[in-house]
Each structure stands twice: as structure tokens, then as C-alpha cells.
Computed example of a mutant assay.
Amino acid sequence: MYKVPGSYKPSNFDKKILMWTGRFKTEEEIPSRIPPEMLDIARNKARVKACYLMIGLTIIACFAVIASARRAEHHESLTSWNLAKKAKWREEAAISAESKTK
């Protein structure tokens, strides 16, 4: 009938996943053929590690935003900052238009 391959030749990326998840210490230890289940388990562990890494980076980013908001002046809001920036742009546009007409 059908023959299901009992082994899989890992690519370079698969080898990096197998090492990152702790299955093998060095690339030389990885055999030329591995069971597909071993690679599936390693990929699942890599997904979990990547998710934990993203969660940690998100928490760090949240604290960075909180810290930067605390450094801003309390009277300053995003709306007032945008209005001041647009007023400065209008002023610069008026000066450049004035210099072009001369």
C-alpha cells in the first residue's frame, strides 16, 4: 500500500529550531534523519517560546509608554501639541509664500 516515511531530513532552519528548543546542544549532534514527531514537538516549543518573548516585549513596551507619558508635562496634551505643530507649519508656509511673492 502506501509507505509513510519514518524519517525526515531537517533543513538548516529546522536544525536551528531543534537547537533553540534544547533538543540538541550543537548542530553536529543532530542526525541526518529525524522522526517527524520530533520536529513537530520542537516547532511547538519554539512557537511557545516566541509567544512568551512577544508577551515580554509587549509588557516592556507598555512600561516604556507609561514612563514616557509621565515625563511629559501634565498641562500638555496630544491635541495641544498637534495644534501647536500645525500653527508652526502655517507660519512657515506663510513665510515661504511671502518670500516667493517678492
Rank of each mutant, 00 (worst) to 15 (best):
C51K: 02
K15V: 11
G22Q: 03
S80I: 03
T58Y: 09
K102A: 09
A67M: 08
D14W: 03
R71Y: 00
A93D: 09
K16A: 15
A42W: 06
P10W: 07
D40E: 09
A64N: 05
K45M: 12
S99R: 12
R47C: 08
K49T: 00
A87Y: 11
E91W: 12
K100N: 04
M1S: 12
P31K: 00
K85W: 11
M38Q: 11
A61T: 04
V48I: 14
V48E: 14
K3D: 07
R23C: 13
L18N: 00
K45C: 07
R90K: 01
S99G: 00
L39I: 02
N12S: 15
E91Q: 13
I17H: 02
I59T: 08
M54S: 13
R33K: 08
K25W: 01
M19Q: 15
I55L: 15
Y52S: 01
T101E: 12
R43G: 03
Y2I: 10
L39C: 02
T101R: 12
F13D: 10
R90C: 03
S80T: 12
T26G: 02
A42R: 09
R23F: 11
I59R: 07
A72L: 13
V65C: 04
A94P: 00
K88Y: 06
S99L: 13
M54N: 03
E28S: 10
D40N: 04
S68N: 06
V4F: 04
Y52W: 07
A67V: 08
K102S: 04
D14L: 06
D14M: 01
I59N: 01
W89E: 14
T79N: 03
A84Y: 00
W81G: 05
